[in-house]
Simulated assay, not measured.
Amino acid sequence: MVERRPLFDFFCHVILVLGILAIAIPVWVALVATTHENGAFVKETPLWFGELGFSIFTDLLNQSDPSSHSQLPILNMLTNSMIMALCITFGKLSISIMSAYAVVFFRFPGRMLAFWLIFFTLMLPVEVRIMPTFEVITNLNMLNSFSGLTIPLIASATATFLFRQFFLTVPNELVEAARIDGAGPIKFFFDILLPLSRTNIAALFVITFIYGWNQYLWPMLITTDIEHQTIVMGIKQMLGVEDGLIEWNRIMATTIIAMLPPVFVVIAMQKAFVKGLVDSEK
Rank of each mutant, 00 (worst) to 15 (best):
C87N: 06
F106T: 07
V42I: 15
A85T: 00
F90M: 05
L31T: 02
A85I: 02
N62M: 12
A30K: 03
H36Q: 08
A100C: 11
D65S: 11
L78N: 04
F41M: 04
E51R: 15
F108W: 10
M98L: 15
R107V: 10
F90S: 01
E44A: 15
W48S: 13
A85S: 05
I88W: 00
V32L: 09
T89F: 00
F108Y: 14
F90V: 06
H69E: 14
H69Y: 12
G50Q: 14
F90K: 02
S55P: 02
F108S: 13
S70R: 04
V42S: 06
M98D: 09
L61E: 06
N80Y: 04
C87P: 00
L31A: 10
T79F: 14
A100Q: 04
E44T: 14
V27M: 14
F105K: 04
I56C: 06
G50V: 05
L61V: 08
L86H: 01
F105R: 09
M84I: 03
S99L: 15
A85M: 03
D65I: 12
F105V: 03
P46V: 14
T45S: 10
L52C: 10
G39D: 06
I56T: 14
F108A: 08
P73M: 10
L75D: 01
F106K: 11
I83Y: 02
M98R: 09
